[in-house]
């Protein structure tokens, strides 16, 4: 249970086409992340799968059955919302039990499942509180609890961590991944944060302006971005993109090189430049180096202990085996073999 397939699905609001016709298949037990900048249609796509919006054309198949016209309540999917969407007038216990109550489950069975979910999510002490009395992270867990008691075919997460502060976000990220490992249920997760996408996903779907730019595992996307958009979107700090004569040397319109694939030296190298801002993160230091080959500074990742003065003269050398080449359309050019 939990295989989802989109066939030529599109969505328009009035005359605006938010999702262009697209195909996508999500395998049983997979953790799939939809990632893209805001307004790319990733949340809309999730809501189409949930049934909270009608598709304009195409079909949504769940476990091989056409669910295009099925009401959200009947699709057997559970959703965790960005705002958590907890019922403020119900206790945590009642919140978690709500889907079971709607399914008219036996009262004892309801209690058993709620207790089980509370144990898994460490919510045991809070069952009789109202959502308003909980912290952000606890609310998040209640929302997840409400989703897991239903034992759904798949979980849908709509930017669930964006309302949490940075430290909690990392913790919840691990918890959700852990949950996936344990339940082995299909999860579809929407985020605009590529770090979340990289760390959690089995499969990433990069979306932009209602179009799927690339589908693949995190490492595939990192190592072989299919086009300039994915190259720039995946990876932090961003990949350096250089156009013009330097790119032509490699028979490309644009070349891309990640900050971690550039050597920096005070004495020699291929590109001469001056150090601009330095960001010391402890383990790593990022230097923004102004070079003649590119109008924008080139970001370089160096060991944490390296210190260079503002304005110092340095030399950069890209490790050419990690160079990405793109044609004038922005598409990846395959390595000359």
């Amino acid at each position: 249970m939990g295989q989802i397939e989109l066939k030529q699905v599109s969505k328009s609001f009035g005359t605006v086409e938010v999702i262009r016709p697209l195909d996508l298949s999500i395998e049983e037990g997979e953790f799939v992340v939809f990632v893209g900048p805001s307004g790319c249609g990733k949340s809309t796509l999730l809501r189409l799968i949930a049934g909270l919006e009608d598709v304009t054309s195409g079909a949504v198949l769940i476990d091989g059955e056409d669910a295009t016209g099925t009401a959200p309540a009947k699709r057997g999917l559970a959703m965790v919302f960005q705002s958590y969407a907890l019922y403020p007038h119900m206790s945590v216990r009642k919140n978690i039990a709500f889907p079971l109550r709607m399914a008219k489950l036996d009262k004892n069975e309801q209690d058993r499942r709620v207790e089980e979910a509370a144990r898994v999510l460490n919510l045991g002490d809070y069952l009789d509180r109202r959502p308003g009395q909980l912290s952000g992270g606890q609310r998040q867990r209640v929302a997840i609890g409400r989703a897991i008691v239903r034992e759904p075919a798949a979980f849908l997460f709509d930017e669930p961590l964006s309302n949490l502060d940075a430290a909690l976000r990392v913790g919840m990220r691990l918890e959700i991944s852990e949950l996936h490992k344990r339940l082995r249920t299909t999860m579809i997760y929407v985020t605009h944060d590529q770090v979340e996408a990289m760390t959690m996903a089995d499969k990433i779907v990069v979306l932009q302006a209602g179009v799927i730019e690339q589908v693949g595992s995190p490492l595939e996307l990192y190592q072989r971005p299919r086009n300039l958009f994915v190259a720039g979107f995946i990876g932090s700090p961003r990949m350096n993109l250089i156009e013009g004569p330097e790119a032509a040397k490699y028979d490309a319109h644009t070349i891309g090189i990640r900050p971690e694939h550039i050597e920096i030296s005070e004495s020699q190298g291929s590109w001469k430049g001056t150090v601009g801002l330095s960001e010391h993160l402890g383990a790593d230091t990022f230097f923004h180096v102004q070079c003649a080959v590119s109008p924008t500074p080139i970001t370089v990742r160096a060991p944490g202990e390296m210190i260079l003065k503002y304005g110092a003269e340095v030399h950069l050398t890209p490790r050419t085996q990690y160079l990405h080449r793109f044609d004038s359309e922005g598409l990846r050019k395959n390595e000359p073999s």
């Binding site: 049934g51 909270l52 919006e53 009608d54 009401a71 959200p72």
Partner: peptide, 8 residues
């Protein structure tokens, strides 16, 4: 933002 069903 809604489905045909909820609109009817």
């Amino acid at each position: 933002m809604a489905t045909k069903a909820s609109r009817s």
